[in-house]
Design a binder for these strands. Sequence first.
DNA 1: ACCTGAACACCGTTCAAGT
DNA 2: ACCTGAACACCGTTCAAGT
Lengths: 268, 268
Amino acid sequence: MATRTRRSQRRTEALSRERIVEAAVELLDAAGEGGLTFRALTERLATGPGAIYWHVANKSELLDAVTDAVVAAALAIEPAEPAESAESAESAESAEPSESVEPAEPSESADSPQEKIRAVALGLFDAIDEHPWLAAQLTAQLSRSPWGSVTPRIFESIGRQVRALGGTEGSQFTAASALVHYILGAAGQNAANGRGPGPDVDRGEFLDAASRAWQELDPDDYPFTRAVAEQMREHDDREQFLAGIDLVLTGITARHLSGGAAGASPVS
Amino acid sequence: MATRTRRSQRRTEALSRERIVEAAVELLDAAGEGGLTFRALTERLATGPGAIYWHVANKSELLDAVTDAVVAAALAIEPAEPAESAESAESAESAEPSESVEPAEPSESADSPQEKIRAVALGLFDAIDEHPWLAAQLTAQLSRSPWGSVTPRIFESIGRQVRALGGTEGSQFTAASALVHYILGAAGQNAANGRGPGPDVDRGEFLDAASRAWQELDPDDYPFTRAVAEQMREHDDREQFLAGIDLVLTGITARHLSGGAAGASPVS
DNA sequence: ACCTGAACACCGTTCAAGT
DNA sequence: ACCTGAACACCGTTCAAGT
């Protein structure tokens, strides 16, 4: 409602694909998937639809470009050099860490493959947290064209580190796929929790409501879900996300220890 | 093009929410996400839009109902009793199993929690394979309302088995979440591979093209992706999917063995 | 209570025309 | 080469009116 009549666009500046993508991201961030419209876009860029169609084939291509740009930025940001002193400026936000996850093992160096995988994963996690529309867009683009630029980008970032973990090429492919799948699935779900149905609903209320809804499920049909409903309210998204990453990493390294690919159950 | 004029609908049968959902599924299966239209729906059901809106609030609610119905069916089907003789009628389709994954360990009983988790996962996998639009729809609904009926349904199916695996309630929550995230992420991606950009493109060509595209990536920027491009063409989706599940399961059980929640690296 | 169907506002996309 | 803007086909949704 506030940022409507934003006219005085310097229409001197030539229209370009980048400017269009940039405006599209702003619209998506501001109003979600439904906010990106060729009409809104023309208004913001002070042109007509034809101008946009000259730079971009159609909406689907525009969305691909937007997705690619945001993902590329997210993956580029992983601080290649930690460099900084090891002050724990990491995740000291709200509420104490509770019990669910301990800090990383001291036995693991800061630039181990594991740590780099966590960094890449968090980069994507944060990108989706910042741009909630990204989750659905990633799924959509993966469906449209797995050979698009986004999939290889993500796959490569993870895969390189997986390779450093060793194992046969086959197990590396499996491991990298599993990590990417987990990341996309988890990030997608968290995009949900993070923003909720819209910017209008408060985050806390949202999780409270969800937790309450879960507690009111039929005890016979949903024993497990009811039992963990409490945790779902208290959990920290990032912590939980990283705990999942660690689970998969444990699986990967445990397999190597037990000698190459094998069945799933070292137990019973 | 063929199944167009399907008029002689017995309009005696009263319209109902179920019939609408049923028709919606058919349209989605036939023509993908874009195929579900209130106009197409009215034509198929031989009514007007008003009639549909009397049974269903809006398109978003209809999609939720459709998603819920399909997921519920998928989860209900998991063959509670294997019963059949152990003839290997499992996955003997095309191409020999190659090397990537061995059959499950003989040490694991057929109705172990692990095996049941695989069954649930495969149920969802197959549902998405059969209804490729489901993947995006799941993401969308999770974003819209995590308290909807779909999330608890899936979460419960997995969680019950996870509980049987033991561990603290906290680790169970983490484990179940990780599994669900992996399943949704992987299934989403596979919905892509399974159908490709449309029903018009052949499956084999599609994967070939993707593999080729990966092999032509810049060797400096994409060493890992290029290296595994070959596997991506040869891999069997279901096998790969199950291998990922097993990876997560290994992670879960390995953690229990090493004594409760811990860091991610039993190695170096 | 349940259904009809015209109408409305909005959307992606096209295209002849301008510079 | 790059942009304008009217126009087209289509979509979700509403609503007065019927039974």
